[in-house]
């Protein structure tokens, strides 16, 4: 039995919605990588991002 296209679409969206990104983990690794690549000179963007809010509005990512 083959699923209908709409069912496939819903299944993929459900899988995407099941994943909850960890903002702090992303920020932490971003910080390390960005600093390493700049040789430690480029900390300012990290500070700017770090001061951002922690609200995770994913409503426009995946319905």
């Amino acid at each position: 039995m083959r699923l209908a296209e709409d069912e496939v679409r819903r299944a993929i969206r459900a899988l995407a919605a099941a994943h909850v990104p960890d903002r702090e983990a992303i920020l932490s690794r971003f910080t390390r990588v960005a600093l390493r690549r700049s040789g430690g000179r480029d900390a300012y963007p990290v500070q700017v991002v770090s001061s951002g809010g922690t609200d995770l509005d994913v409503s426009d990512d995946v319905e």
């Binding site: 920020l27 700017v48 991002v49 951002g52 990512d61």
Partner: peptide
Amino acid sequence: RDDAFAAYFERHHAAFSRLAYL
């Protein structure tokens, strides 16, 4: 420049993670 990137980070980090997860 940094404000613009901060906004980019907040707007896209979750979607990028979901894309990578899929």
